[in-house]
Write a protein that binds this DNA or RNA. Structure first.
Lengths: 225, 225
DNA sequence: GTCTATACTTAGATAGAC
DNA sequence: GTCTATCTAAGTATAGAC
C-alpha cells in the first residue's frame, strides 16, 4: 500500500536534525518573532496568532513551547533586562568622567542598535505604566542610578564637571540613545531614508558624546586629570 | 397607571441641560478617556469596552458618538498634531540662537506636561511603526525639520554655535523633552516619587537648556550678538 | 513531540427597543 | 437621542488525534 510512516508524515524537519535541535530552533524563532510583535503592538495588542504567523508556526505550537502569552512576554522582558545588566559595569570616583560618560553613551547606543525590538518592547512596557517592571524599576535599577548619581556629584565637587542634576543627566542619556531605535519610524520618515546605517549610528554617538560632555563641562578624554 | 413618559425614563441628565450639552459633555469625556486608554495600550491593545468604562458610559454609546474605533483614534492623533502645530512658530536666521533654542525646549516641555496622554499616544503610534502618521512625518514634519535645520546651519556658519548636525540636535531636544512624560513610570519608579511636580518640570527645563545650549556652543540669552 | 479541532471569552459593530 | 440585546470575528487556551 501507499501508507507512509507516522514519522515521515509529521516532520517538516531537515535530515539529520534531532528532536532537541527542532525544539531549540523553534523556540528561538518564536522568541524573535514575539519580540517584534510585542514591540510593535504592546502586550495587549499582540496576539498569539500574529506571533505564530511571524514565526511560521501554528498558533498552538507557540503555546505548546511557551506555555502562555504572559509567560512569553515576561521571558522577553527578562532577556532584555539581562542584556542591559550585562553592560552595567562598575565605576569609581577615580575614573575619568569623560571616558566613563563616553563609554556609557556608546554602550547604550549599541545595545539599542543590536536589539531595536527589545528596546521598543521595553519602551512599550514603560509607556503602558510598567505593569510588569515595577519591582525592577524600584529595586535594582533605582540602586544602579543612585550609585552613579553619587559619583557624578563627587566629580562635580572635585571640579571635574559642572554641578548638574546627576539623575536627569542619566535620563537625558537614556532618552537620547534610545530615541533613534524607539522612534525609528519618525527618524526614517523625516530624514527620508529607508534605514539607519552603522555610519549613522557612529555619527550620532559622536554627536551625543560631544554635546553632552561639553554641556556638562567635562573635558574630553585624554586631557589629563 | 404608573407609566412615566419616555423622556423621564431616558435621561440621567441634570435639570436644565439641553440635548446639545449632553452630547458635548459625553464627547469630551469619551475623548479624554480614549486618550488615556490608547496611550496606555496602543491602538490594537485598547478596547472600546475599556474606553467606555473609563468614560463611565455603555460601549455602544461610545460607538454611537464616535462612529468606530479607528475614527476615534485618528481624531485623537489629529488633535495632538494640532496642539503640536500650534507651537511651531517661524524662526529666522536673524533671531538669537539661545532665545530660540530655549523657547523651543520650554514649549516642548510644556506640551508634554499639559498633555502627557497625548504625548504617550503619539509615542505609541511611532513605536508601532507610525501606520497612521506616515504622511504627516514624510510631509509637514519633514519640511518643518528641514527649514529649522537650515537655520541652525547658518548660525553655525556665522559662528553663533558649533557646527553640530542640526537634525540630530532637533531629535535630541525632542527625545529629552518627551522622556519625562512618555517614560513617566520609569522616572517615578527610579526616583521613588508618586508624581512629577511643576517645580520638577521647571528644574528639568533649566537643566536641559543649560546642557544643550552649552553643549552646542551657544551663548546664553542676552550676551549680545 | 506536534498539530487539528474545539471550548470559551472578548472583540468591534449594529439593529431595534424605548 | 440613548441603551439593551445580539451578531460575527477574533482572542486565549486546551484536549486529544496522530
Amino acid at each position: 500500500m501507499n501508507d507512509v510512516t507516522e514519522s515521515e508524515l509529521q516532520r517538516p524537519r531537515q535530515a539529520g536534525e534531532s528532536n532537541g535541535a527542532t525544539r531549540e530552533r523553534n523556540e528561538r524563532e518564536i522568541l524573535e518573532a514575539a519580540e517584534r510583535i510585542f514591540a510593535q503592538y504592546g502586550y495587549r495588542g499582540a496576539s498569539v496568532q500574529a506571533i505564530a504567523e511571524e514565526a511560521g508556526l501554528p498558533k498552538s505550537n507557540v503555546l505548546y513551547y511557551m506555555g502562555n502569552k504572559r509567560g512569553l512576554y515576561v521571558r522577553l522582558l527578562e532577556r532584555m533586562m539581562a542584556r542591559w545588566n550585562a553592560l552595567l559595569d562598575d565605576i569609581s570616583v577615580d575614573d575619568d568622567p569623560a571616558e566613563v560618560l563616553e563609554a556609557f553613551i556608546r554602550s547604550k547606543m549599541q545595545l539599542s542598535r543590536r536589539h531595536p525590538e527589545g528596546s521598543r518592547l521595553f519602551a512599550a512596557e514603560i509607556l503602558g505604566g510598567a505593569p510588569f517592571l515595577q519591582d525592577y524599576l524600584r529595586g535594582e535599577l533605582r540602586e544602579w542610578v543612585r550609585t552613579r548619581a553619587r559619583i557624578f556629584e563627587q566629580w562635580a565637587e572635585r571640579g571635574l564637571m559642572d554641578p548638574v542634576d546627576p539623575v536627569w543627566l542619566i535620563f537625558l542619556i537614556w532618552s537620547a540613545t534610545q530615541h533613534y531605535a524607539d522612534f525609528e519610524a519618525q527618524v526614517l520618515g523625516i530624514t527620508g531614508r529607508d534605514e539607519i546605517t552603522d555610519a549613522d549610528v557612529e555619527r550620532i554617538t559622536r554627536f551625543l558624546t560631544q554635546v553632552i560632555l561639553k554641556g556638562c563641562g567635562v573635558r574630553p578624554p585624554g586631557s589629563g586629570a
